[in-house]
Design a protein around this nucleic acid. Structure first.
Length: 655
RNA sequence: GGCUGGGUAGCUCAGUUGGUCAGAGCAGCGGAAUCAUAAUCCGCGGGUCGGCGGUUCAAGUCCGCCCCCAGCCA
């Protein structure tokens, strides 16, 4: 940790967007990093905010009969409230409609314009009257609007451009000589990949007001507003006083970590650095692109109905558990998948069974064997081999966490802490304080429990940035306040005689009870030996059910949907297979069906059939099949299952 | 299509410069224990490390070819 300060940013989120897990993840990650750096005693500044200009806000405002600013003021609250709920400790929340931002953006534009970094140009383009949208030649689909398919008109348009192309060679060199600039490194390769193979174009930074009114006026031409990136990206420096407060600006800039999703890599590793270069401002130390959260195997999408609402998850399982899962489950810059099964599994095993239960048993024994008072530690408390080993494990978690913050591998830091937690559980099995107590070895019991508590003290400090609320609860049990770095490596911090509180259940075990989630395959439960018929096991929650009968929930796990057959053709080299193009609601899919002996391709086109929509896709004859259709067959006859009456659209739920 | 990355136990993944590198967690099975949240602890993995060749005394680890997957191409 060589740096004197830590400045972390999230992207500013589009104010019109509904907050989702992607927003929540980036912001929680930034928060965790900020909290760790504060814990390490490093001056820290954490910025997030909202991007509030643009067409969508303008349209939403019109629709709602509001002024665009009112529209923003209403919707920005969704983000602000979510961050409060998720325990986000940002130091500032910038909105691009604030004067402090707009004024500086205009100053920057004027300066760049004066220095000929920005120029005016006329060019040919295409306009779709229906969509009120402008396109360049290559956007068009066979000369038509890519949105609505209608004919686009050729028009002449004027705009302002930033001479980004001037900086291509400089940028390539910069990225190659600053490996820490784009992280993870394979993302740097991506940026370099196209910088080296394509000629960088100049960046259009304006929109005529006729097309877009809701934006920051260009200071040198009031017929235009600033277009998205030149407005939005500058937030990272306008918020900390660029051109307004040199002391504050120089204190924080250049940013240490600028966190982004991989979808905005180019803007942050090409537009942003070249803008800064033109302005004569140093580049951020690291732009870090993280992956996306997927649910199951598919990308999060509304049409699939698998969007995980972060607010809802936080409500159901607790904010801290949610934060823990997100940080523990995401590896470096990879994509990660969010499923309730995975969540429940990790929650139960890491938080409930390992950590929560460890606290319970420790506190319980302190109450039972030590009068509920912290017994204190002698000078030679660490003299035994098991004690040395345990403390070494705890200290290696401290070291691992420290290094994992630098390398952004927080998940491996958390793994190290959990390893230490398990070590304490093992330590109990070795020392068996309950046996020591029976044998009247009071002092030995004291040492054992005190060491466990000290270990929990350090682990809770290491987990505090991820789970601030729960770890505060845990620490208060031992009379501890906020964690302090200097105490992480010190032994014997809890004062002798401290009354030990009763924490209740820190992380109650949870059961998977959502019908959307795929249940775990049934596992044969074996009777434990020595247990009679009346044992607790037999009073299981699951009622017995007859062989071959399934429950309502099990039926509902199979998603049956109606689908319209759009096209069908034979699969070459397979006499039984047809390749079908089908439509389930908005979604198009292809599936392979073994019905070619019974149906000519022409005969199935246009039919509404019934398909299993959530079957894992498979390759049949090397062709992907995304689903399975239902048909009835007896002997050598086969007929498709279809609907009795045509419905207005496909994708209907079959039940 | 071009470029980049990846294919390691049922699942998610670690594996630094080639030589205890065949591993961890979860799931599963067997056992122990009873302080604890039906929690804990111990033991159990015959996986062609995607396939085929090659280099080497020695290759998940290097080279070549092939197959599959993912990402990027403003």
């Amino acid at each position: 940790m060589a740096d004197e300060k830590y400045y972390v940013t999230t992207p500013i989120y589009y104010v019109n967007d509904k907050p989702h897990i992607g927003h929540a993840y980036t912001t929680i990650l930034a928060d965790v990093l900020a909290r760790y750096h504060r814990l390490l005693g490093i001056p820290t500044y954490f910025l997030t905010g909202t991007d509030e200009h643009g067409q969508k806000v303008q349209q939403a405002a019109e629709k709602n009969g509001l002024m665009p600013q009112q529209q923003c003021d209403q919707t920005v609250v969704r983000f602000q409230e979510l961050w409060k709920r998720l325990e986000i400790t940002h130091d500032d929340f910038i909105r691009t409609t604030e004067p402090r931002h707009k004024v500086i953006v205009q100053e920057v534009l004027q300066d760049l314009f004066d220095r000929d970094e920005i120029y005016r140009a006329d060019y040919q383009g295409w306009y779709c009257v229906g969509c009120e949208r402008f396109f360049v030649e290559k956007d068009l689909v066979e000369g038509n609007c890519p949105e609505c398919g209608r004919k686009a008109d050729a028009i002449q348009e004027t705009n302002y451009f930033f001479r980004m192309s001037n900086y291509q060679d400089w940028l390539i060199d910069y990225i190659e000589t600053h490996p820490e600039f784009i992280q993870p490194d394979f993302r740097a390769n991506e940026t370099l990949g196209f910088l080296k193979t394509k000629k960088l174009q100049d960046l259009c930074i304006s929109r005529p007001k006729a097309r877009l009114a809701w934006g920051i006026d260009l200071p040198f031409d009031s017929d235009f507003v600033t277009y998205v990136w030149f407005d939005a990206l500058l937030n990272y420096i306008t918020a900390i006083g660029y051109r307004r407060d040199d002391v504050q600006f120089n204190q924080w800039w250049p940013a240490t970590h600028q966190l982004i999703g991989k979808d905005i890599l180019t803007t942050h590793t090409v537009y942003w650095p070249t803008m800064l270069k033109a302005m004569g401002v140093p580049l951020p130390k690291t732009v870090f692109a993280h992956g996306w959260w997927l649910t199951g195997r598919t990308k999060m999408s509304k049409s699939l109905g698998n969007v995980v609402n972060p607010m809802e998850m936080a409500d159901r399982f607790g904010v801290d558990a949610f934060r823990y899962f997100l940080i523990a489950e995401m590896t470096v810059g990879q994509d990660a998948s969010f499923t309730e099964e995975a969540f429940v599994r990790r929650y139960n095993s890491d938080l409930a069974n390992d950590l929560g239960n460890l606290l319970s048993r420790t506190v319980n024994m302190l109450g039972r064997y030590c009068d509920g008072k912290f017994p204190g530690l002698g000078k030679d408390a660490l003299s035994g081999a098991p004690e040395k080993e345990l403390w070494a494990a705890v200290q290696s978690a401290v070291a691992e966490m420290e290094s994992s913050i630098d390398t952004m591998r927080l998940n491996s830091g958390l793994t190290a802490v959990l390893t230490a937690v398990r070590k304490v559980n093992q330590y109990f099995e070795i020392k068996q304080p309950w046996t020591q107590a029976k044998e009247g070895k009071t002092e030995a019991v004291g040492i054992t429990l005190a060491l466990a508590a000290e270990s929990l003290r350090v682990c809770s400090a290491l987990l505090y940035p991820v789970m601030p609320e729960k770890m505060s609860e845990l620490r208060s049990v031992f009379g501890l306040g906020k964690p302090v770095l200097s105490q992480l490596k010190t032994f014997g911090v809890i004062k002798s005689g401290t009354p030990v509180g009763s924490p209740g259940i820190l992380f109650p075990r949870v059961e998977l009870n959502n019908a959307e989630a795929t249940p775990l395959p049934p596992q044969p439960k074996k009777e434990k030996r020595g247990e009679g018929a009346a044992s607790a096991k037999n009073m299981s929650i699951e009622p017995e059910k007859p062989e071959g009968i399934i429950t309502y929930d099990e039926v509902m796990n199979v998603k049956l949907r109606t689908a319209k057959v759009l096209a069908a053709e034979r699969v070459e080299g397979a006499d039984k297979l047809l390749k079908l193009k089908i439509e389930i609601g908005e979604e198009k899919r292809q599936l392979i069906a073994g019905i070619a002996l019974y149906y000519e391709p022409e005969r199935v086109i246009g039919k509404t059939i019934v398909v299993v929509a959530n079957l894992k896709s498979a390759k049949i004859r090397g062709i992907e099949s995304q689903g399975m259709l239902l048909c009835a067959s007896v002997g050598d006859r086969l007929t498709l299952i279809t609907v009795d009456e045509e419905l207005p659209s496909s994708g209907a739920v079959v039940k």
